[in-house]
């Protein structure tokens, strides 16, 4: 009987030590976070200082499925994002995009001039996909653009999530007036996102199918499906096949001269 009592005490003490340790180690469990704080953690999680990615886009426009493969180089100094995208699938081979000083430049093998994309063109589907150029190139921190509010906590695909509503800050020019994020409570990665127009119409739905731990306790979505709800019966699957955060990226890649 004494043995049982001792064993019971050991278990209770052990549990208390474990829980105390968890609370000390991960203060987030003990402290309730605001919507903005959660999204700051998401921003930090998704922030890539430097990366080389190989990815694939599968575009289903309801009639035909086409695939785009690309290699992307990204550098971000915390204020500006520079990105160089090179398409490597046969149909688009040689086409390159350069995001520089918040402007998008394009190079096409059959064109003599670089093309600068601006205005409404940025709202068009990138390569006919459900991702607009603005979706793909969004580099500002979400917390700079939106006011966030934690709506509720829920379960999504067996994962506990925060449901957070972001409404555009006054004076900020954003593509979507309102966005609802389903943020994984433990990994601080967005698992689902709904994007709305000012009048409340659902414009796009992004669902994350896979997330990957790229560094210790740092997760990013690596496979997602975007559905443009204005178009009918279309979806685009974006799949990051390889990501290298330690790749030595030459600055030349981000110069206009090197685009041609």
């Amino acid at each position: 009987m004494n043995k049982i009592n001792k064993l019971f005490k050991v278990i209770i003490i052990g549990l208390m030590v474990f829980l105390t340790g968890q609370i000390l180690i991960n203060p987030l469990i003990a402290v309730s976070l605001s919507g903005t704080e959660i999204m700051e953690l998401v921003d930090e999680n998704q922030f890539l200082e430097s990366a080389r990615m190989e990815s694939k886009m599968e575009i289903n426009d309801g009639r035909r499925v086409s695939e785009k493969e690309m290699v992307t180089y990204i550098k971000n100094d915390g204020e500006d994002t520079k990105a160089n995208v090179e398409f490597i699938n046969p149909r688009d081979r040689g086409a390159r995009y350069l995001l520089l000083d918040n402007e998008l430049w394009m190079y096409f093998p059959d064109a003599e001039d670089l093309v600068r994309i601006s205005g409404h063109m940025l709202e068009q589907g990138m390569m006919g996909s459900d991702f607009s150029y603005q979706d793909a190139l969004e580099s500002e921190k979400l917390t700079d653009l939106y006011n966030f509010e934690l709506i509720e906590e829920d379960i999504l695909n067996n994962r506990p999530v925060y449901i957070i509503e972001g409404v555009a800050k006054d004076g900020e020019e954003v593509t979507y007036y309102k966005r609802i994020f389903f943020v994984d409570m433990e990994r601080f990665v967005v698992l689902k996102e709904e994007m709305y127009a000012r009048e409340g119409r659902l414009l796009k739905l992004r669902t994350v199918e896979e997330v990957e731990e790229i560094e210790d306790d740092r997760w990013i979505p690596t496979r997602m499906v975007m559905e443009d709800k204005i178009r009918q019966g279309t979806e685009t699957i974006y799949d990051i096949r390889e990501i290298d955060l330690s790749y030595n990226i030459s600055e030349e890649l981000f110069e206009l001269e090197s685009l041609q």
Binding site: S66, D92, M106, D113, V115
Partner: peptide
């Protein structure tokens, strides 16, 4: 003059040509 236009082909690929 030479002018560069963009267009989408049947595979929805954005292309540019002069």
């Amino acid at each position: 003059d030479r002018i560069t236009f963009m267009y989408s082909d049947v595979y929805q690929s954005l292309q540019g040509r002069t």
